[in-house]
Design a protein around this nucleic acid. Structure first.
Length: 813
DNA sequence: AGTGAAACTATTTTT
DNA sequence: TAGTTTCACT
């Protein structure tokens, strides 16, 4: 395959400053007159007053757009016009002739953000400007760079990109090849380690000795190295590699790096608070080209919510040290929310220690206070929310402007049930994504193997789907042959069917499959790719497999397949389509009709709605107990940022609710209100009484939450927490009382809900326990420690078997 | 190789 | 509770 030649001409042109275009208001460089974009630019009147886009900005935004020289950090609070600044800045760079579109590197995290930015820049500069080639996600830019220099990192130009399934399948093979028990050492866990290392920019040899022993009793690093070797053999890269390998490329090849230094005159980074170490290093390397790099990072430390994915808030907190002489601009004027909402969010977030500090303000109306409602259980909560939504709907509100934000997806079920019974239209955002569905992955695997016979992992995925009598043993034989003669699996299949190695049935079956692929490949040259896809799905028996399936989802799977073929129409070639799906895991959610949106807080980042319902503000749910256990104080702060993100999604009203009981995994658990509820500012919050389902308000306990209808009879002492005024420092006391209260109904006792000193400390440091030590656990009884991983212990309990627990839950014995 | 029943395990998830 | 995965059996 030829090296891609789609590259833009300006790459080799001399820097445009030489033609004197360094200041605003000058015409585009003359030498570029051949390029459409430059001709378009040249036609534009170039006086600086002819930059109406600047007049539309407030002073801070304008400063952020005009500070083009040197490093700039824009701290853009929620709803302060971040995207606008970013796009205007790009437009401004282009308009003033400081750089060609191809000389601007602009990175985002999501495809959605990249698409949006591209569209907005085009609208600014005029559609005649060719799209910016280096505007994209970290990953897509990583691929682009790697494809050009693949051989330098041990890959070939046409390398494939692994998805999560492929990755796991490969890791399983690596684990087994090392002679390890795949049950004792799950591939998922190894994948998690490797992912974390890659996020931190660590190649196998750089994994710290202490951590190298993290997996399989000291084989972590070896397995990581073996996995990387296998990737190279397969000519494949996983997601982490797209960044890590381009990072390595730059570090090992200063001449290549210099080319990019030369090229990128301006670097812009969106959502800087979400960058991980690898991305940070990558950016630093690219910015190193000059003493005062023109790098502009836009972000909001208060909206950093992907720490668990490797994001380092520290990157943004440290910006000024990293780039001395940086200009820091704060955008604090909020255009989205009313004053009460803004004040509530701002006040809540001040409880965080680790932040740069911003105070959002608005000139807009005070609006309504944020409401807080305490409810009996999740069912009542769902009913209350839908009742409210129905009322809003009757008043003429758009359902599209209403969202329900939850911490975790398990909270969605009750809500969905309620929407279904009431018949209110809703949509779940996030959810299982199109390209993650099994049938889509299978179909893509068929297409991929057709296009690329050397893609072993995809071939393995569908070799026996639909079932064609090629079981584990047969596949194993093929794989052994492939490994022994160092050829791709498909080639091994081709040769093995010439031998007597396989049983008659398997041999015939595999021979048929190989023949089919050969035929499809022959067709690929002549047939449109959508036709080919239909043919493949049909002839392989894949469509038929689902037609014969009597499960209720079979129908929708078939529809998904149709949609996939339809979607392929948007691409010119099969190759182009495959490259796209490997990077873009989602299909654009067409917003059809007027519906309420239900989504997680994470999915809500960047969106806005008139009315937002924030449900499930209970300790353990939100903040999530698991985050607290795993990340202690830092985790708590991240949860609080999540609350901040949630509240700031609302334009005109925000409604917070919590329940005393919530069903999770089949059983009810009692809950106490989230500490975040207590942290809300009295002056901007209104406590709303819950209505009973039987009509009328019920007796008020004198508490801020209006008590509850069942309290007197069913919770004689227990609801102490509910009775206290939540503003008092008594929550802790009340919570303790609640937990220790022996009259609490006989349901599962909630796990400790605080993050105490020792737990926080132990999450980062090594556990004080030792291997083989005998310990006692409240729930599981006595046992011996068989593995230690940070503060997590694997213990063989005498009665309950092997479990993984956090060390603070066990005591020495 | 393919079936059915027991067993296990559950956040958040930009790419 | 529900979904998946493993295991034992045919």
């Amino acid at each position: 395959m030829p090296i891609e030649q789609q590259d833009d001409p300006p790459f080799d042109l001399p820097p445009n400053t030489e033609s004197g275009a360094g200041t605003p208001g000058q015409a585009a460089p003359a030498h570029a007159q051949g390029s459409i974009s430059q001709r378009a630019l040249a036609k534009r009147p170039m006086s600086s007053s002819a930059a109406p886009y600047l007049d539309a900005l407030n002073p801070e935004q304008r400063a952020a757009v005009e500070a083009l020289e040197g490093p700039v950090l824009v701290l853009a609070g929620a709803g302060t016009g971040k995207t606008r600044v970013l796009t205007t800045r790009i437009a401004h760079i282009l308009e003033t002739g400081r750089a060609y579109p191809s000389q601007i590197l602009a990175v985002t995290f999501t495809n959605k953000a990249a698409r949006e930015m591209k569209e907005r820049v085009e609208r600014f500069v005029g559609s005649s400007v060719e799209g910016m080639p280096w505007l994209g996600t970290f990953h897509s830019i990583g691929v682009k760079i790697l494809r050009r220099h693949a051989e330098l990192v041990g890959l070939k130009q046409g390398f494939t990109i692994l998805d999560v399934d492929d990755q796991l399948r490969l890791m399983k093979q690596v684990i087994e090849a090392e002679g390890l028990d795949k049950d004792r050492w799950p591939a998922r866990q190894l994948a998690a380690y490797i992912d974390r290392w890659k996020n931190r920019g660590l190649t196998p040899e750089k994994v710290p000795a202490g951590e190298a022993h993290a997996f399989a009793g000291g084989k972590g690093r070896e397995l990581y190295a073996a996995y990387q070797r296998r990737l190279k053999e397969l000519n494949a890269a996983d997601f982490g590699d797209l960044l890590l390998e381009s990072l390595r490329l730059f570090m090992e090849n200063p001449d290549i790096l210099a080319q990019y230094h030369n090229r990128f005159r301006y670097i812009l980074v969106d959502e800087y608070q979400d960058t991980n170490v690898a991305q940070y290093l990558w950016l630093r390397l690219l910015a190193q080209g000059s003493e005062k790099p023109n790098i502009c990072c836009v972000g909001d430390d208060d909206q950093s919510i992907y720490g668990w994915r490797g994001a380092e808030v520290d990157n943004i907190l440290r910006f000024e040290q990293d780039f001395p002489g940086a200009t820091v601009i704060r955008l604090e004027r909020n255009y989205r929310s009313t004053a009460h909402i803004l004040a509530t969010a701002s006040h809540l977030i001040t409880a965080n220690e680790n932040r740069l500090g911003k105070t959002l303000f608005t000139d807009g109306a005070a609006g309504n206070k944020v409401t807080v409602t305490g409810l009996w259980d999740d069912v009542e909560e769902a009913r209350t929310v839908t009742d409210n939504i129905e009322a809003l709907s009757k008043q003429g509100h758009q359902l599209n402007e209403i969202a329900i934000l939850v911490r975790a997806s398990f909270q969605m079920r009750v809500l969905e049930d309620r929407f279904v019974t009431t018949g209110l239209p809703y949509r779940v955002i996030g959810g299982p994504r199109f390209y993650e569905r099994a049938e889509i992955k299978d179909a893509i695997a068929y297409l991929e193997v057709t296009a690329n016979p050397a893609n072993d992992l995809k071939f393995e995925r569908i070799i026996n789907v639909p079932k064609r009598g090629l079981g584990d043993t047969s596949v194993k034989r093929v794989r052994e042959l492939a490994r022994a003669s160092e050829i791709p699996l498909f080639a091994a299949a081709q040769s093995i069917i010439e031998t007597e190695e396989l049983s008659g049935k398997a041999r015939r079956s595999l021979s048929d499959l190989v023949g089919q692929f050969e035929r499809w490949r022959a067709n690929a040259a002549t047939m449109p790719h959508t036709e080919l896809a239909k043919l493949i799905l049909d002839e392989s028996g894949y469509t038929q497999m689902w037609q014969a399936d009597k499960s209720p989802q079979a129908q929708s799977r078939l529809e998904n397949l149709k949609e996939l073929v339809h979607f392929m129409d948007d691409f010119d070639t099969l190759q182009g389509f495959l490259e796209h799906v490997s990077l873009v895991m989602d299909i654009d959610n067409a917003s059809d009709g007027d519906r309420v949106s239900i989504m997680t807080l994470h999915a809500a980042k960047g969106l806005e709605f008139d009315t937002v319902f924030l449900t499930g503000w209970e300790e353990g749910v939100f903040p999530s107990q698991r985050t607290l256990d795993e990340s202690g104080q830092a985790g708590l702060e991240e949860e609080r940022r999540l609350a901040y993100v949630g509240i700031t999604r609302a334009k005109v009203s925000a409604h917070i609710s919590f329940t005393q009981n919530r069903r999770n995994r089949g059983l009810y658990q009692s809950a106490i209100p989230s500490r975040f509820v207590d942290e809300l500012p009295e002056a901007h919050v209104e406590v709303v009484e819950a209505k009973t389902p039987f009509g009328g308000a019920y007796q008020n306990f004198g508490g801020r939450f209006g008590g509850n209808p069942y309290g007197a009879s069913r919770f004689d002492e227990a609801p102490a927490a509910f009775q206290s005024s939540y503003a008092t420092p008594g929550w802790q006391r009340a919570q303790k009382q609640w937990q220790s209260d022996s009259t609490t109904p006989p349901r599962r006792r909630a796990a400790p809900r605080t993050i105490e000193g020792e737990l926080v400390a132990s999450s980062t440091s090594e556990s004080s326990f030792e291997m083989g030590e005998r310990v006692f656990h409240q729930k599981f009884g006595y046992g011996r420690i068989s593995e230690i991983d940070g503060n997590k212990l694997t213990i063989d309990f005498e009665k309950s078997g092997r479990k993984r627990v956090v060390d603070s839950f066990v005591e020495r014995h």
